[in-house]
Design a binder for these strands. Structure first.
Lengths: 174, 174
DNA sequence: CATGAAAGTAAAACGAC
DNA sequence: GTCGTTTTACTTTCATG
């Protein structure tokens, strides 16, 4: 599994961006269809997609699961505030929080709040236990404020507009 | 594209849960390997996975893209507060926010905050413009508080523990 | 780096149970 | 619902430009 946070950070060309956009929209699209869509040979497409994964541009491909369907109908966003702000506390939390049960995402942020934790639980009780056991009851944590999620929406991702390549813009002006 | 929010909400059996867990971990795992892993025929596996998608248990399969690599290095979580709380404002926002450029997710929540918006922007300037153009300058919005994201972590998803099926527990005790 | 062709695999449909 | 088989399609490697 590539953990590269893109060390050289090579800029992607238009083809790479097109592949990224397609995979972001449908991560199970076949290599053959990807190749057809972006207009390159299948073998070339395979190499490019593999490179995108190795470079860490594509960090992974995951099914988006409805939490309700798998018995975790209670979703919440929990704002966590630390006291003291010792580096070790953040580091430990950063390491452990993704592995806590039901955690969908966690965000280390600037400002009054230190962490947002997005979680899906089996019940309101389970949510309370999660907060008490894993957040409030943790060295360094001052406060955890839980917001129940009424509705969770997926955005269109990092590449909403099809592409901003010069040719297309030229065509638009014509 | 199936939009079913699981109308009958049939409970998933252990095989379905295993498939969900595997696809959540690796959405590109081949049908053949899925079948092998969960111990069913490939043709059966195909039917079950298709059913999971049709029932909306699997809402989609998407590549997880590093925003930095595609030119959106500034990530933020924006807490949005509405005034008046007119239903129409929420409905319009709910409809439009997933389509705004760079939006990765949005969460309608209970409490002092009404919405959390997770966004990836090209720059700090672009983030400011996003907030001003699409959030602050929107009918009904009272306030938007932006937290820069230092680090974004993916959780293990809805099904962290492998499975809690009786056989496995029995095996563990042996 | 990109390609086409060849060899190996996998997906999808089907009939049977 | 599940399965084994067959047909169709795809992935992947490799030699070449």
């Amino acid at each position: 599994m590539p953990k590269n946070p893109q060390p050289p950070a090579k800029p992607l060309d238009a083809t790479d961006l097109a592949l990224v956009r397609l995979l972001e929209q449908d991560g199970r699209m076949s290599n053959a269809m990807l190749a057809r869509e972006v207009g390159i040979a299948e073998s070339t497409c395979l190499v490019r997609v593999r490179s995108l994964r190795e470079r860490g541009v594509v960090r992974g491909i995951h099914a988006d699961i409805d939490p309700v369907a798998v018995g975790r109908p209670v979703e919440a966003m929990i704002a966590v505030r630390f006291g003291g702000h010792r580096r070790s506390h953040f580091e430990q939390f950063t390491e452990e929080v993704p592995r806590l049960p039901g955690v969908l995402g966690a965000f280390h942020v600037s400002g009054a709040i230190d962490y947002f934790v997005h979680v899906a639980c089996e019940s309101a009780d389970a949510l309370r236990d999660f907060v008490l056991d894993h957040l409030t009851n943790r060295p360094g944590v001052l406060h955890a404020e839980t917001s129940l999620i009424f509705e969770s929406l997926r955005g269109r991702g990092t590449l909403a507009p099809p592409e901003d390549d010069p040719e297309e813009e030229a065509a638009d002006r014509a």
